[in-house]
């Protein structure tokens, strides 16, 4: 059964919708656009990375579809392929940020 969660919802932008459920989703979307504008990659290359990630991610029955998680994974993988950023580098900073969130840096 097709889920149409936004049917009938009060629409911003005259029946468009604000796409981002959390601020990080908007940041990730904007980063991909900005990097494309800056010439770091072509949009088609990003699209190819996204298609690959989507195709290799099984859809969990009954779970909400995490589109922006896949979008983020595609961006990370493309930046790694382009030797712009290694995923380990991101992982290290994530660990530091997580420690901060638990109050270890106070």
């Amino acid at each position: 059964m097709l889920r149409i969660p936004d049917a009938g919802a009060a629409p911003p932008l005259r029946n468009g919708e604000l796409d981002f459920e959390a601020p990080w989703q908007g940041r990730v979307f904007a980063m991909a656009n900005a990097l494309c504008e800056a010439g770091v990659f072509e949009w088609q290359e990003f699209q190819t990375a996204l298609i690959r990630v989507i195709a290799s991610s099984p859809v969990a029955e009954g779970q909400p579809y995490q589109y922006y998680n896949l979008f983020l994974a595609a961006l990370e993988s493309l930046l790694a392929d382009k030797s712009v950023l290694r995923q380990q580098t991101i992982g290290q900073l994530v660990a530091e940020l997580a420690a901060r969130e638990h109050g270890h840096d106070h």
């Binding site: 959390a22 601020p23 990080w24 989703q25 940041r27 990730v28 904007a30 980063m31 900005a34 990097l35 800056a38 770091v40 995490q66 922006y68 998680n69 983020l72 961006l75 990370e76 930046l79 712009v84 950023l85 580098t89 991101i90 900073l93 994530v94 940020l97 997580a98 969130e101």
Partner: peptide
């Protein structure tokens, strides 16, 4: 996790001078 990864990614890309947070806004 995703929010943290996004934050980390943005910081690293800003450090590299590839993106400007104000432009993302």
């Amino acid at each position: 996790d995703a929010a943290l990864r996004a934050e980390a990614l943005e910081r690293l890309l800003v450090e590299k001078g590839l993106i400007d947070p104000a432009h993302l806004d």
